Computed example of a mutant assay.
Amino acid sequence: MQNVRLNVQGMSCGHCVNSIEGALGKLGAEAKVDLQSGSVTVYFDETKLTLDRIKETIEDQGYDVV
């Protein structure tokens, strides 16, 4: 398992948390959103999921990975 912390812009509420954590959960990753710091920590199996796919999934939810 690998973990990565991403800075994400546009998150402000519980809906944002559920949207991102839910979408990444469907990919088989575990995500923890921190609204205060504007970050998402993602735990994933690098043999099954790429960092690019994680970023793309977050952006598909309407947020910007910076």
Rank of each mutant, 00 (worst) to 15 (best):
K26G: 01
N7E: 14
I54D: 02
E59I: 01
T57C: 08
D60Y: 05
S39T: 15
L35H: 11
S19I: 00
Q61G: 03
G22P: 14
S37Y: 10
E30S: 08
S39L: 04
E30W: 04
T41Y: 00
T41Q: 04
V33P: 10
S12H: 15
G10K: 12
Q61F: 06
L49R: 02
T41H: 00
E56P: 02
G28K: 02
G14F: 03
D34S: 13
T57D: 07
I20E: 11
E59P: 02
I58G: 14
V4N: 05
D45M: 03
A29G: 09
K55I: 04
M1P: 06
A31V: 01
L6Q: 09
D34H: 13
I58W: 02
S39G: 13
D60E: 15
C16I: 12
E21R: 10
V17I: 15
V33W: 11
L27M: 14
K32V: 08
R5H: 04
D45Y: 04
V8Y: 09
N18V: 01
N7S: 12
G25I: 13
R5W: 00
Q61N: 15
K32M: 06
V66D: 11
E59K: 15
C13Y: 06
E21A: 13
F44Y: 15
N3K: 14
V40H: 01
G28A: 05
N18M: 11
A31I: 06
D45T: 00
Q2T: 06
G10C: 08
G22D: 11
E46N: 12
S37G: 04
M1V: 13
L24A: 04
K55R: 15
K55H: 13
M11T: 03
Q36W: 07
K32G: 02
G22N: 13
E59W: 04
E56F: 03
S39Y: 03
N7C: 04
